[in-house]
Design a protein around this nucleic acid. Sequence first.
DNA 1: TATGAATGAGTGTTCATTCAT
DNA 2: CATGAATGAACACTCATTCAT
Lengths: 237, 237, 237, 237
Amino acid sequence: MTSPSHTRPDRSRVDPAEGGAAPRRRDPERTRQAILDAAEDEFSERGFLGGRVDAIAERTSTTKRMIYYYFGDKQGLYIAALEQVYREMRQSERAIHLDDLEPVEALRTFVLSTIDFQEARPSFVRMVSFENSLGAQNIAGIESLRELNRGLVDSVGRLLQRGRAAGVFRDGPDAPDALELHQLISSLAFYRVSNRATFREIFDHDMLDPAHGETFRRRAVDLILDQILVPGAARRS
Amino acid sequence: MTSPSHTRPDRSRVDPAEGGAAPRRRDPERTRQAILDAAEDEFSERGFLGGRVDAIAERTSTTKRMIYYYFGDKQGLYIAALEQVYREMRQSERAIHLDDLEPVEALRTFVLSTIDFQEARPSFVRMVSFENSLGAQNIAGIESLRELNRGLVDSVGRLLQRGRAAGVFRDGPDAPDALELHQLISSLAFYRVSNRATFREIFDHDMLDPAHGETFRRRAVDLILDQILVPGAARRS
Amino acid sequence: MTSPSHTRPDRSRVDPAEGGAAPRRRDPERTRQAILDAAEDEFSERGFLGGRVDAIAERTSTTKRMIYYYFGDKQGLYIAALEQVYREMRQSERAIHLDDLEPVEALRTFVLSTIDFQEARPSFVRMVSFENSLGAQNIAGIESLRELNRGLVDSVGRLLQRGRAAGVFRDGPDAPDALELHQLISSLAFYRVSNRATFREIFDHDMLDPAHGETFRRRAVDLILDQILVPGAARRS
Amino acid sequence: MTSPSHTRPDRSRVDPAEGGAAPRRRDPERTRQAILDAAEDEFSERGFLGGRVDAIAERTSTTKRMIYYYFGDKQGLYIAALEQVYREMRQSERAIHLDDLEPVEALRTFVLSTIDFQEARPSFVRMVSFENSLGAQNIAGIESLRELNRGLVDSVGRLLQRGRAAGVFRDGPDAPDALELHQLISSLAFYRVSNRATFREIFDHDMLDPAHGETFRRRAVDLILDQILVPGAARRS
DNA sequence: TATGAATGAGTGTTCATTCAT
DNA sequence: CATGAATGAACACTCATTCAT
């Protein structure tokens, strides 16, 4: 079982010799990364329109001028931050090596990993939410993001293929394809994080409360398997 | 079957005697409503932080000063707009009179109605998304919103009760309660709208394309019923 | 003979009751004019690119925000200032009522008036110089400026016509037309002001020094009359 | 007759051995000249205040740091560019060897050469215009520029002397001196270029259109000779 | 009830210039 | 000789909000 251990990797660890938090001088990669991390924080909290370049500069030890030096403008920085969170999402999927697991276990692992990632990295969810609310204007035409996500759906596609070949996954025109499966899993995992605040405010119920975590995970896995497994197939490997 | 016919009601038709589109003179209620509608448009497109009071004034034929006269400040206007979309959502649920339908049909109708509403009123989804991304700061403590939503979950609760009493809905500690059911249905219906833009941009797949509408609705209803119905129960009334 | 008495009209004298220099409150026209005058000063000294909106605000008692309120942006203000100096130039020509003078006297008066105006209003010359150096980008398509200037050339055209009809001005294909005459007069009057600084710096000679004024005026008038008058015509009326 | 063939000399051809366009390595003089030419372009298009050091660096293949290495600061570079265009102007006058021509022909040649040069090198006109608009602040005290220009007026002075000695040029207190003659010729030649843009924009008339070139040249030469020649003197040698 | 005028603090961005290597 | 990295001050422009009438 996957444990919710997705935390932001310490990308600033470029030169482990220097231990300081702030990029002091002459370490461009560290400076760049520090800006990027600050941008992720700011944009995930306030969105593209609400995010302030000044605020990002203040979160860093560098100056505002450096932001423009490295990223050109606010949108360039925003896109770079968006790419970063998408890349991490993709890496978290790659890390579980779906192709090495037998289909049912792979699917179960994938569902849990998706839930875990979104729970552990709420800034991913927030950034994607903001971006959607603005009609994905900033994302439009960024090929790297398309590739990242398509790679993920391809993984799911291979998984489905193997399951069908093994006779454990449903087949035929009525069975969901990889994209539909991705949509379904994402809906469950994403909504829990994206709508947490209003849900809590309105219902006094925290969807991310660990007390509900196991129940939610079990229900989600079962629900997905119900949709995919051929009736009567064994759920445990 | 519910058809997707949720469009924004023509709230400006306060005094049908006057036919003009713009609130000319001496009709405070119409002026107020025009501001509110403009605010809903602006805030749902750009969020609270991104939304501009000037832009709202320009969308209306009234002046900026009136906004402050009627709503106090930007946040007051934002909250009023949020209340408006929530109220409509609740009204759309009330309109289907769940209590008058037998449980299975009521559940099916509720699922479809939820899907339809969110599809027809994307500004609801966008405003809720924005609000969540900001941690529901603006919503905090607004009792009216809590009441609206709790009324909805209460409806679902009565529905579940009736189904269990009739022996068609699952019971016991493992069966989902009203809030969990609401979360599940919302996840499916909300995500389809909230993440439409990035989904389309990344996968060239429009989740709201009518071509996929029927399949999605059928799968969603079946999926929910699978979770609620006692095994072997008749799905059609 | 025309005396060099073209000074900037006191356009701020809107409400003669209030004598203060600064537009205090609630006198929009005065505020607007104060901004415009400050803009003329700033832009004529530093050009469009070199001129600073902040500096213009500081020259006024109003704030920078008001500049944008009245003129939209820097370019809008610049164009308004340019229109203002062009308009004054035209008015100074209108003030001498060329049509009421007999041709030779009218021509002499026009030449002197042109020289006087450019001498008295160096900010006109500087603004036009700057605008030319930038390729007249900002002027392009501003119809009001075209009309102002064409009105002036039309005046010169009527003057030439009358002189030819009276047999005192040269005629035929070799005689200069109104536009060529305007170019010639402008060259003399404009260059004296536009190139004053480098001339003084390089030759220690101030073209605008009153000591040379009479000589310059006499030579200029004679030179122009030489070009226009039929040989042997009386130069004095 | 002088033909308008003043084009910017290919100053980059310092070391003809290397054929490359860009100053690659180990050719400091070429690097310096490339920067200078880029500066002339930039400053003549946008002025001292409007010109950007970054833009100059981008016009060259060298880096911004080199600009500071070779020229100290922005103003140093600006002055160097100004000196360059003034030097070329002076060289174009020297090239016609006024002292070797008889006075009337020399004067005619000088007028045409002046017209040709300003027409061929509009960046000279623009830079001088900008510099004047700023009150010649940057030029102040640059002795080299004074020498260049005084040498030119001295040439004209010798020319006048020879003409008077030969009895073909007017003499006496009423006759123009060398500086006045320079001013007159410059006015005609300079204005045609300096005010081309607004003239074209306002009157739809391009003063530099080749169609008007011959007429303008003939009139200018005649006009100058009218001022200088003793009445009745032969215009052709 | 309504409105044009006014404001100060901030908004993204660019400037000429210098540093460390 | 040459370079990428860094800087602080300034840049044009916009924000939500309030005032006087």
